[in-house]
């Protein structure tokens, strides 16, 4: 457990995390966030960096072996003194393992064996490979919808569903942390989710725009761009 009053000024200087998801414009840019985070002491800054590094896909090579990912997560968990932060990392890695299993099954792969994922459900998932939710309806109730979205090929819907699950997990873990280091980490992870959320929104808008313009152009088959007529 960290000092409950360690980062009162820092947390108070950040816009509320709920506002992140309702704002049309990001209330806090990455530059400003990083500037505010310079108030963290050296050890806490390193810990935050390691947690972000583990949970960000951008920090992995495209060819990264699953064993390497699991090894890095376990190494981080061994050295994290805060139980809440350990639970956050474990929850997120378990979420990713369950989604990886859904993807493997959709691609027609057989039940995996050995070290194929992270967390307490890996053996259970392999043992219940043919069940739509791997018989994890009770502990992971979001898995059914995630499976349906994946089967339907709705990548954006799945991405948003997973962001929502991750956000709810952070909300749950943040209940007892207001001004301590855990609160800062939870805020930064929420900000990262918001950033991805905003990016997925932009992608959706671009797709919608392309679809609308295609529809509009279909109504004028003779229309030639560059000012010409057919």
């Amino acid at each position: 457990m960290s000092d409950p009053d360690a980062y009162i000024a820092l947390v108070s200087s950040l816009p509320s995390s709920e506002r992140l998801f309702v704002a049309k414009q990001p209330p806090l840019s990455e530059l400003r966030l990083r500037k505010r985070l310079s108030a963290l002491d050296e050890d806490d800054a390193k810990t935050l960096h390691r947690i972000e590094h583990i949970l960000s896909w951008a920090s992995y090579d495209a060819q990264a072996e699953i064993g390497e990912v699991v090894k890095r997560a376990r190494s981080l968990l061994r050295n994290l003194p805060q139980p809440t932060l350990r639970a956050i990392v474990a929850d997120r890695m378990e979420l990713r393992s369950a989604i990886a299993a859904l993807r493997m099954r959709r691609d027609g792969m057989a039940a995996p064996s050995g070290q194929w994922g992270f967390g307490k459900w890996t053996r259970h998932i392999a043992a219940n490979w043919s069940d739509p939710t791997f018989r994890l309806d009770a502990p992971l109730p979001w898995l059914r919808e995630a499976g349906s979205l994946l089967e339907a090929g709705d990548a954006l819907g799945l991405e948003r569903h997973l962001l929502e699950i991750a956000f709810r997990q952070l909300q749950r873990h943040g209940g007892l942390h207001h001004f301590d280091f855990e609160a800062v980490v939870i805020y930064v992870l929420k900000w990262t989710l918001f950033d991805r959320w905003a990016a997925s929104d932009a992608q959706a808008a671009a797709r919608r725009f392309a679809q609308l313009s295609d529809d509009a152009l279909q109504d004028f088959p003779d229309l030639m761009l560059e000012g010409g007529t057919g």
Binding site: I8, A9, L10, V11, S12, L14, F179
Partner: peptide, 13 residues
């Protein structure tokens, strides 16, 4: 001190 730190942080925002 605790409340003062919060007020300083809030002034930034």
């Amino acid at each position: 001190s605790i409340a003062g730190q919060a007020s300083i942080g809030a002034m930034l925002e």
